[in-house]
Amino acid sequence: MTYASPYPELPENAGGFLSWLGIGRQPRPAEMPAVPSATVAEDASQRARRHLLEQISAFLLENGLEVTAQNLVTAHGIFSGLNPGLRRQVQAKRESGCPITQAWLDRASANDALDGEQIVKQLVSQLEQGIASFSRSTSNARSATRTYGDALAQHVGQLEASPPDAGMIITELAQYARAMLERSRKAEAELRQSEQEAASLRRNLDRARRDAEVDFLTGLPNRRAFESALERHRSEAAEMGEPLCVAFCDIDHFKQVNDTHGHEAGDRILCVVAKTLSQISGEKCHIARHGGEEFVMLFRGASTEEAFELLDNARAELAARKLVNRRTELPFGQVTFSGGIADVFAYPDARLALAAADEALYRAKEAGRNRIVLARKDS
């Protein structure tokens, strides 16, 4: 007995796509666009990283929080499980219907912060790695999706080129294939957007890291940046046989300036001193604001005597200026600073050299201020 096929006779140019679907003749390898594994599913670790990044991004955006290094670290602690106490606080805040503001987050994270500079660096590093991994995965998935869509588009073209009398099955298959192609192109567009978002997040993280190492008032590097530079230059100078000196400088009677003229005027004095010291900085001399009215400098390739001459000239230049408060037209009086200098290689490590420079600064203050003092060799 002979059975009739339930399908109409198909045109030759539809064979490739139908064979790929398992209808008609056996498939040939050249006609089968492989479905990339990257478009089907990501492995568990990729999904976890993606989910963590999405949670962090949503938290910052939904609450109107800036993308700063501290906020990224705080959000990572909340959603990675590293800071369960803060996570519970955030959850309680949400359940109460109260907004999560920057001020509240700063207080909450300060009260329940993860201690240690190394932990912060580790978290930022993990976040960077997560962003990089997410970006690579998204890029690979988009590339595979594009290849898949191009192959699918060829078969859609074959089906749509079929003669009008090809039958209902061909029309339906063409419609189904066209819908698949549209979904593929949509997925490709979404993956491209995810790539752009990952790149934007990476740029924001880079900017946040730079901002975290800059003193916003004076524009100088801050203490964290200086300590990193000190270790790097100490290693390089030791390898090249260059001298290296460190100096602490402190504005004299700064509290009196604030008490007499106000903190805004005090900030301007800080900027004046920062600019004075910056004039002697360069490729071999680095300056940073160490905190408060204190600055720290690194002299590479200069002996303690040479560093003393440079710093003392800057001190004398500032002391000779007649500064006036522009808001009140009242003179500030003589503005001076004191300093202490130490030879970094005269001590077992850089921290001991910093301590010696600080001790020399103290002696300069005790001796009457407005002077530079060299650290004792036995200090």
Rank of each mutant, 00 (worst) to 15 (best):
A265W: 07
N222Y: 04
L311N: 08
S133Q: 06
L361I: 12
R183Y: 12
L352Y: 12
E117C: 09
A92P: 09
F345E: 01
L82S: 09
R107I: 02
I56N: 00
T260H: 10
A357T: 04
T101H: 03
P11G: 05
G167I: 02
V35E: 12
A229G: 11
G292H: 08
V324D: 10
Q279P: 06
S303V: 05
L123N: 07
G77H: 04
D259S: 06
S200D: 15
L311Q: 00
S228M: 09
L10A: 08
A208H: 05
T74G: 01
R224V: 04
A44L: 15
E197A: 15
L61Y: 05
F299S: 07
N258Y: 06
Q279S: 11
K93W: 08
A319R: 01
L105F: 06
E293L: 03
A319F: 09
G15F: 02
G292I: 03
F308I: 09
P84Q: 00
S194K: 10
R363L: 14
E366C: 09
S281L: 04
Y3D: 14
A166L: 05
A189S: 14
F226M: 04
S139G: 11
R210T: 12
E128T: 06
E359T: 07
A151I: 05
R136F: 11
F79K: 02
N204G: 14
R28W: 03
G130A: 09
T260Q: 13
R87G: 07
C285P: 00
V273L: 09
L152W: 04
M240Y: 14
I287F: 03
Q26Y: 13
I341C: 08
F308E: 03
G15M: 05
H155E: 01
A320S: 03
A212M: 02
T68R: 05
V373H: 10
Y347M: 12
E31N: 13
S143Y: 10
A44K: 15
A320M: 08
L217V: 01
V67C: 11
P27A: 00
G301V: 05
D343S: 14
G333H: 04
G266E: 08
L330Q: 09
F226I: 00
A14M: 07
D215L: 06
A265T: 09
L86Q: 01
N370C: 03
H51A: 15
N63I: 08
A367Y: 06
C249K: 03
V257F: 05
L201R: 03
N204H: 04
A360T: 02
D343A: 12
P11V: 06
L374T: 11
A103N: 08
T304H: 06
A174K: 01
R183K: 10
Q91S: 04
R50N: 15
L152E: 05
